[in-house]
C-alpha cells in the first residue's frame, strides 16, 4: 500500500470569529476521484483551497505528496506547481491568448523552452477538443470553451492532483456536458481529482468516494452507491432529496 497523496488531519480555519472549517480529516490515495458536495457555505470550497494554500489553515495538518503545508514560502510555490486548479469562473488571463494562457506557467515556472511548451499546449487543446481556438483570446470564447482552456492550462504543468471548484456551475446548461466529458476522460486516465460538484451523474460515473460537507464538517462519506442508496445521516438524505428532486 503506497502512502496517500493528500493527508488532512483535523484542519481548522477561522475567518475572524466565524469557523469555516471545524476539523476536517481526509486521506486521498493516488488516482482516486473524490467528489465533495454540500450546501453553499458548508466550507467545501474553503477546504479544497487549503490544499493548494490559496487559503491558510490555522490548526491541523495538511500533507501533500509528502510535503507539509506551512508558512515556508518555497514549499508553497513547489506544492502549487504540482496541483492544478479549475475555478468556477474560469479565471483565464484576459490579456493573453489561449495558447499563452496555457504556456505561461510551463515557460516561467518549469523553464521549458517555448517550442516544447507550445507543443504540449496543442496536445492538451486537442485533448479538450478545441485546437482551432489557440490564437483567440478568452473573451472571444464561449463559457464551455473557456472552462476547457482552463483545464488545459492546469494540465500543462503536468500536475499530480487536480482540484475542481464547481467547474460547471457558471455554465449555460448546453455547455455542461462538454466540460464534464473532458473531466470524465481525465478521471479514467488515472488523475487524482478532488471535485466539488452537484452533477450527480458525474459522481456516479467516476467518483470512488464522496464527501458530504455541512457547517465546516464532513458529515458523511462513502462510495457513490452507499451515499445514494443508503445514506446514514438525516442531513445527507435531506440535501440529496433537495438536489435530486427533479
Amino acid at each position: 500500500m503506497t502512502e496517500p497523496i493528500i493527508v488532512c488531519r483535523d484542519v481548522h480555519k477561522w475567518y475572524g470569529h466565524f469557523e469555516a472549517l471545524r476539523g476536517v480529516s481526509m486521506e486521498v490515495e493516488r488516482g482516486e476521484v473524490i467528489v465533495i458536495f454540500g450546501p453553499s457555505g458548508s466550507g467545501k470550497s474553503t477546504f479544497i483551497r487549503t490544499i493548494n494554500r490559496l487559503e491558510e489553515h490555522q490548526q491541523g495538518q495538511i500533507i501533500v505528496d509528502g510535503i507539509e503545508l506551512t508558512y515556508d514560502v518555497r514549499n508553497i510555490a513547489a506544492v502549487r506547481s504540482e496541483i492544478g486548479m479549475v475555478f468556477q469562473q474560469f479565471n483565464l488571463f484576459p490579456h493573453l491568448s489561449v495558447l499563452q494562457n496555457i504556456t505561461l506557467a510551463p515557460i516561467w515556472v518549469r523553464k521549458w523552452p517555448k517550442e516544447k511548451a507550445e507543443e504540449v499546449a496543442f496536445q492538451l487543446l486537442r485533448r479538450v477538443g478545441i485546437p482551432e481556438q489557440a490564437r483567440k483570446y478568452p473573451g472571444q470564447l464561449s463559457g464551455g470553451q473557456q472552462q476547457r482552456v482552463a483545464i488545459a492550462r492546469a494540465l500543462a504543468m503536468q500536475p499530480k492532483i487536480m482540484l475542481f471548484d464547481e467547474p460547471t456551475s457558471a455554465l449555460d446548461p448546453e455547455m455542461i456536458k462538454e466540460v464534464l466529458d473532458v473531466m470524465i476522460e481525465l478521471a479514467t486516465s488515472g488523475m487524482t481529482m478532488l471535485v466539488i460538484t452537484h452533477e450527480m451523474g458525474f459522481a456516479r460515473a467516476v467518483a470512488r468516494r464522496m464527501f458530504f460537507f455541512d457547517e465546516g464538517l464532513v458529515v458523511e462519506s462513502g462510495t457513490p452507491d452507499e451515499i445514494f442508496s443508503t445514506p446514514k445521516e438525516e442531513r445527507t438524505k435531506l440535501f440529496l432529496s433537495q438536489i435530486l428532486v427533479h
Binding site: N52, L54, A77, A78, R80, S81, E82, I83, G84, M85, F87, Q89, N91, L92, F93, L104, A105, W108, V109, R153, A154, M157, L163
Partner: peptide, 15 residues
C-alpha cells in the same frame, strides 16, 4: 481571482 489563478499555477509572487 486573477491572482489566485496565477498562484494556483505555481507562479511566484514576482511572476
Amino acid at each position: 481571482e486573477q491572482v489566485e489563478a496565477a498562484r494556483s499555477l505555481g507562479l511566484s509572487e514576482l511572476f
